[in-house]
Amino acid sequence: MGNMEFVIEAEGLTKTFGSFVANDNLNFNVKKGEIFGFLGANGAGKTTAIRILCGLLLPTSGKISVAGFDVYTQTEAIKKHIGYMSQRFSLYEDLSIYENFRFYGGIYGMSRSKIKEKTSEMLGRLGIESLRNSIIASLPLGIRQKLAFSVAIMHSPQIVFLDEPTGGVDPITRRQFWEMIYEAAAQGITVFVTTHYMDEAEYCNRVSIMVDGRIEALDTPRNLKDKYQAKDMDGVFLKLARKAG
């Protein structure tokens, strides 16, 4: 029964588009409360895999469960138990902070009082209660990014998927963002994150590196650096990805 510890289990995950193999027999498990880095070059197959895990795309074959639900048959249940945030789409810029919270809370069937409670809790944590009715477009990018993350976890999902969440953000905000991620993980939310910043890979508990549709490496950053004799994750990544190229 130790199974319950894993919130994502993928066994032989394969996805083909015609003759093109986007994901080739991926095997990995992600533990509850873990920060799991999902790295790879552009076109390595990350996006396809994330779409499958979020229940947006059916795999060609493989045994995959997310939050205890099957990706073939229980995609609706999966969607209720995950959160998602990307750099490209996060909040409605023409709505206020509270209106965004109310909208996303509503989507996940949260009650009005629960939404109110969550909103003040999260704004309190960010120290921006006074901005509750500010329009998103008027806020600095850093605050928006943190709000987007708050919205993604407001319904207390088991897993939150972050697709390049920190692109273009200043270094201080990036760190505050990672502190938020650590806090969420400490509360038991599993964090599944992609990034192009190799130094950010070092924030993760474990990192997988995809090359040409396959997972070439999966371990803690420290073990990976030892194994590939690199001084940082950038070195590990270059060794793996160049080998493929």
Binding site: A41, N42, H196, F237, A241
Partner: peptide, 10 residues
Amino acid sequence: TTGVDAVSRR
């Protein structure tokens, strides 16, 4: 180099 992977950036 924004949005481009580490290898392409290099």
